[in-house]
Amino acid sequence: MEYDPLLLLVLAGLGVIAGWINTLAGGGSNLTLPMLMVLGLPPDVANATNRVGVVLQGAVAVRGFHHHGKLDTGNVWAILLPTLIGGAIGAITAALLPNVTLKPLLLGTILTMTLVILIRPNFIAPPAGTPVKSPSESRSAWLGLFVAGIYGGFVQAGVGFILLAALAGGLRYDLVRANALKMVCTLAFTSVALVIFISFGQVRWIPGLVLAVGTMIGSHLSVKFAINAKQSTIKWFLFAMTLVACAAAFIT
């Protein structure tokens, strides 16, 4: 299949924006998925191909947060377990079913987070010194991570909001560390999903790698911003992105 070079350039540019958004909040795939379909990819193939950019973006972000000492490794495996189980379930489901089934979940989660940020801002942005919980201490957080894995494995777009609800809201991480762990989870279950999609022959490598160049650049820049930004700045950026994601989900 031949691709329009100009459209590939636009895809890379959108990848930069998506990588920046995904690292700080979520919803960047609402930009890249439609662009992949503009290139001529069917929805299921676009959904699978999008994961190439997400995986490489996640690798850059995790390395960046770890380099700056913002990645809490103590609970990583306990946090990864439910997301990996959910991610495998979601990816297999996505490979076999139309990728519209979980849209109500996305909308419900984003709308809930928007209200929570307005009404109870300390829930999603815990004050400094708030004790962190492990997943074994919070069943709701464990369930949230499992649901995030299913949703992320299925369709990806907006999964960052579900992960942040579990990590910042449920486990009480500050937003910088929650974003670092969010990217670890995203990298893990998206890698599982990508392997499944490759086995089903649904990944197109040229647009996938072009997109990845953009997402990696965006993620690198976003980590640098997150390390130096105030938590309140990240919180309101997250709020703005929930509104944008709501509008995008209603439109699409």
Rank of each mutant, 00 (worst) to 15 (best):
L238V: 13
A212K: 05
L211H: 10
A240H: 11
A165H: 08
T114V: 10
G160W: 03
L97K: 05
Y3K: 09
A95E: 02
W205Q: 03
L80I: 00
M241A: 01
C185R: 01
G15K: 02
M113S: 05
A249I: 02
V54E: 00
W20I: 04
I150A: 03
S29N: 13
V76K: 12
P207K: 08
L143G: 11
S134H: 11
N47V: 00
D72P: 11
V132D: 11
S199I: 02
G149N: 14
G90S: 03
A226W: 08
F189Q: 12
P135L: 07
G208I: 00
A178L: 08
I110H: 07
G153P: 09
G40Y: 02
L56P: 09
G13F: 04
W77P: 11
Q57Y: 04
Q202N: 05
R120V: 06
A229Q: 07
V16R: 08
N47I: 00
A46S: 09
A88D: 09
G53A: 11
T242G: 05
A91W: 06
V55L: 14
P131Q: 10
M183E: 04
G19L: 05
N22Q: 10
G169A: 08
T83N: 13
D4Q: 07
G26R: 10
G152R: 03
L6Y: 14
V76S: 15
P135N: 09
N179V: 04
S232C: 05
V132I: 15
A166K: 07
I198F: 14
L96T: 08
M113W: 06
I92Y: 14
A229H: 08
G160N: 06
L56V: 03
N122S: 15
F197I: 02
G149C: 05
P104C: 00
L209H: 12
L8G: 03
A18N: 05
K182T: 01
F239N: 07
K133E: 08
A245E: 04
Q156F: 01
V195W: 09
K70S: 12
I150P: 04
L171Q: 05
N75R: 15
S138E: 12
L211Y: 00
G19E: 05
C246P: 04
F197P: 06
T114M: 13
V184W: 13
K230M: 07
F237M: 07
P127I: 03
F237V: 12
L221G: 03
T32E: 00
L56N: 03
A178Y: 13
L118G: 02
P34G: 01
P42C: 07
H220N: 14
P127G: 05
F239Y: 14
R51G: 02
M1S: 14
V16W: 02
T190G: 00
I196P: 09
D4N: 14
V192F: 08
L96I: 06
V184H: 13
M241R: 08
G86V: 01
S222H: 09
T242L: 11
T215Y: 06
E2H: 15
S222W: 04
G53M: 03
I119K: 15
P131M: 04
S222C: 12
N75L: 13
T190Y: 00
A18H: 04
